[in-house]
Nucleic acid binder design. Structure first.
Lengths: 219, 219
DNA sequence: TTTTGTATTTAAGCTTACTTAACTTTGTCT
DNA sequence: AGACAAAGTTAAGTAAGCTTAAATACAAAA
């Protein structure tokens, strides 16, 4: 399968997960950095191939076959991320872009070697679930956006969305890491910013937009 | 850099090493599985980019810049092969085709992580030298084709050329492996076939063509 | 119900890496 | 030297994956 098709299907899946709503041509075009016309073209093509249910002017919906392909690419991506992080010691800021390339050029056989080496992990180093070979996605029960935590409540970080290098850098400079326990001190309704207390009692203030990329479980 | 360009330069380098003579358009076309016209096109293009010294109707010669690029791809290929073999336990017959894809999608940074993990190896699992970052190739002094060993002489296998899956299978069924010590019992000038004795005293006969893919040092 | 603005599709065209087929150069053989 | 076969080049065309610009559908407001 071509890199284009892989990325197309993968990003439809990821966008629908991230936003919780339907994926339009323009949103996908924006995400892939290509024109809306190119998305229409590809969507029609993948519709013919039975990878998605394409209807003009409607949102993009993956078929079962398409979702399976998307999950397979995501599996490869996340296994690579964990491998690069845990085995080769690459930093969290780099593993995403490396995995972004490797995921398309990895045979199922090689992937299962890596899976075995890592002892069948369920989550990647950012906390995202690694889909199984059959397409089953490990549960994230109880994982909610940081904004849903009440004032004075404690929670543990379960997932950090490294959406780009700037956000990655912010996580790093704030010292935010997976499995860290935080206390939400105050939520300012004025702009949605949140004041947090770290395990070492250090206090910081983060914006609503950054908070949207942090997910945790209540303690 | 595109996969096409990488492969073009890499195979010019490899062919000139393997055959010891100059690389023509038709030989390269055959190797890459594309038409001669496509080779001419690409050669002209890479000539303009200063990656090779292109002159119509003459053999293809890499420039310094082109050779460096070729060696870099070969370095990636061979480091991947060793990594897949030694760390992930893949079989020798598979590592080549996996590396063939990965080599084009591996950053220099990732490659150096792998190099460090493997503790700066000099040879891949087939016995081929791994070029250094600067383009220096580890010495293969004393390594000669099996056909150059005299009758009754002993030698140690240093390199096996896994040119395709059939040859790989033959190595496997004969039990030929790197660092194995062989004795050449008889060379038949009629067809060039060679009778060998294994460490366990087992005797086998191999064809000249297979012997051409075995390289060793005299003991 | 008609208007209007936004989203989507269609159309035409570009680039890369190929193809086949026709043509040209080279080097060898007599 | 001349002819010829082999090797290489040029020309024209294809498919994939894009682009921009013009045309069309949809949905929400008047």
């Amino acid at each position: 399968m071509s890199v284009s098709i892989d990325n197309f299907l993968k990003n439809i899946y990821l966008l629908s997960q991230e936003t919780g709503s339907s994926v339009t041509s323009s949103i996908l075009a924006e995400r892939l950095g290509i024109s809306v016309a190119a998305v229409t073209d590809m969507a029609r093509k993948l519709g013919r191939q039975g990878l998605l249910d394409y209807r003009p002017y409607r949102a993009l919906m993956l078929s079962d076959k398409g979702r399976k392909m998307a999950l397979k690419v995501i599996r490869k991506h996340r296994l690579w991320e964990l491998f690069l992080y845990r085995v080769l010691g690459m930093d969290l800021m780099s593993v995403h872009e490396e995995a972004e390339k490797l995921e398309h050029h990895t045979s199922d056989k090689l992937m299962e070697h890596i899976n075995r080496f890592l002892e069948h992990p369920d989550f990647d180093p950012h906390g995202d679930p690694i889909p199984g070979i059959g397409g089953n996605v490990p549960s994230e029960k109880g994982v909610v956006p940081l904004s849903e935590i009440e004032e004075q409540e404690k929670c543990k970080i379960k997932k950090l969305r490294y959406r780009d290098s700037e956000v990655s850098k912010m996580f790093e400079t704030f010292g935010l890491r997976k499995d860290m326990v935080l206390k939400v001190l105050k939520v300012y309704s004025f702009d949605g910013s949140i004041e947090l207390e770290f395990p070492d009692s250090k206090k910081v203030m983060i914006s609503e937009k950054l908070a949207d990329n942090i997910f945790c479980v209540k303690q």
